[in-house]
Structure formats: C-alpha cells, structure tokens
Amino acid sequence: MKALAFVATLVTGAILLYGTMDFPAWGDPQAPASVHLSTHYIEEAVAETHVPNIVTAVLGDYRGYDTMFETIVIYCAGLAVVSVLRRSR
C-alpha cells in the first residue's frame, strides 16, 4: 500500500515537472500572468479608488463580491465547528 502511494506520488510529480517545462522563468516581466489584466489594476487602481495599497483596493473593491463570500465561508466554518462540537450541559 505504501509502495503504491509512493509510486503514485512520484508519477504525479514527474508529470507536473514535465508540465513546468513551458512555464515562464522566475521573475520574468513578460510572463503571461503579468501582461494582461494586472497592468490595468497597477496603473488605474490609485486613481479610481484613492487607496495606495493595490492589494487592499483589489480585495475590497474590484473583487468585493469574492471577499464577501470569503467572509461567509469563514463564518460558516465557525458555525459548523460550533454545531459539531458544542455540548450544552
């Protein structure tokens, strides 16, 4: 069982390493992740929201819907833990 798990892990790692052959090098400014959408946020976020911290601006304003449900997720996690464990005497 352990040998099977080890082989499966090695195969998965080898496939992933083969997949990283086409990935951009570390710190490449022309990487596909850095040229499409994020340039708009970097150039316009301060003018549009007056928040110097771009991470906060994107988290609270542009992706506010995402963050709202993030809060709901952690709220539901707390609710789940209380309802699973809490015993009132």
Binding site: A33, L37, V55, L59, D66, V73, I74, C76, A77, G78
Partner: peptide, 20 residues
C-alpha cells in the same frame, strides 16, 4: 498584485478547512 489577493482568500479558506 492579483496572485497576492487570490492567495489571501485561499489562506482563509485553508484555515476554515483546517478548523472544520
């Protein structure tokens, strides 16, 4: 900045998963 934002939310999800 986009991966930082996405991973901030991913860390919160990971904390919730660990607690439950």
């Amino acid at each position: 900045p986009l991966p930082h934002v996405l991973m901030l939310t991913a860390i919160v999800v990971s904390v919730s998963i660990t607690g439950v």
